[in-house]
């Protein structure tokens, strides 16, 4: 085959990467200045970062978002993992209907999920949003199906004889579950947990319908802040965006290093 030029491909990649990263990077540069607008002149300043970490309102919003993400993800990982194990060993009909219902929040629009949970709990049952229950349940509804979906394939890959063998050797069912089944499905559980965290952190729609009026997640806070014209808050959010970008970058590098190490190990084993 004749060799084709790589240049058009490189140009396409470069243009799209520019489109994706330019806004984030320009914002990152301006977050280190005292300029009130992008494009305005300014000098180097760490004021935005100081504001981000010292303003009570911003701090409690960030901590609240993280606490909600970790709390709801721990619960949904427990629920989704036990659910996947239980359903996997249940009757075919039950297994299939669980799979179908599990798929509803996955394909459903988050607006509809959030709205319907609010209608059920707050409007129909009169539950107060201030209890945080609607919010936590909402986030669990959003994330548990994904935990379920990431654990299920691991159960399917597992050798069914392992559990039986453990029982034959005298292990109690709960001991066999902990010592035999859990280690086998652990990668699925962990990626389900990570997925739950990311989905919870990124959510706007469920939170906006179910959160207490005085509580804000990053998403609901940012949306409200962009409607107002408080420059102070606006520029502090540039700093927040930059901090998150830096964390994501670190995490991606770490993930990549881990993947390389695993690949290297696999090649070693194969050789």
């Amino acid at each position: 085959m004749k060799k084709k030029s790589m240049i058009p491909g490189i140009i396409i990649i470069a243009l799209v990467l520019f489109f994706i990263y330019a806004p984030i990077l320009i914002l990152a540069v301006y977050s280190f200045t005292d300029a009130a607008n992008i494009g305005a002149a300014g000098s180097f300043s760490l004021e935005n970062y100081a504001k981000l970490f010292t303003t009570e309102e911003l701090r409690s919003m960030i901590i609240g978002t993280l606490a909600l993400a970790v709390g709801s993800s721990v619960l949904s990982t427990l629920l989704g993992t036990t659910g996947a194990i239980g359903m996997f060993y249940s009757h075919k009909v039950l297994q299939k209907s669980a799979r179908t219902v599990n798929q509803i929040p996955v394909v459903n629009a988050d607006v509809v999920t959030g709205f319907s949970i609010c209608i059920l709990l707050v409007v129909f049952f009169g539950m107060s949003k201030d209890t945080f229950l609607p919010l936590v349940i909402g986030h669990m509804t959003l994330t548990t199906p994904f935990v379920y979906l990431s654990v299920l394939p691991k159960l399917q890959q597992m050798d069914p004889a392992l559990y039986e063998a453990a029982l034959d050797l005298g292990a109690s069912p709960s001991y066999a579950l902990r010592k035999v089944v859990l280690p086998e499905i652990l990668p699925g559980v962990l990626s389900g947990f990570a997925l739950a965290i990311t989905l919870s952190l990124d959510d706007y729609f469920v939170a906006t319908y179910t959160k207490p009026a005085t509580f804000d997640t990053i998403s609901t806070y940012v949306v409200n802040a962009t409607k107002g014209s408080q420059t102070q808050i606006k520029t502090a959010l540039w700093a927040l965006s930059t901090v998150i970008f830096a964390l994501v970058l670190l995490f991606a590098l770490f993930q990549n290093a881990r993947k390389n190490r695993n690949n290297a190990r696999k090649e070693e084993q194969a050789a």
């Binding site: 992008i38 990053i218 940012v222 962009t226 540039w238 994501v248 991606a252």
Partner: peptide, 15 residues
């Protein structure tokens, strides 16, 4: 970029 909260990304784009 999908790991960055989408409201913050849209803020960047808006600017």
């Amino acid at each position: 970029p999908m790991w960055i909260n989408f409201t913050l990304r849209i803020t960047a784009l808006k600017e």
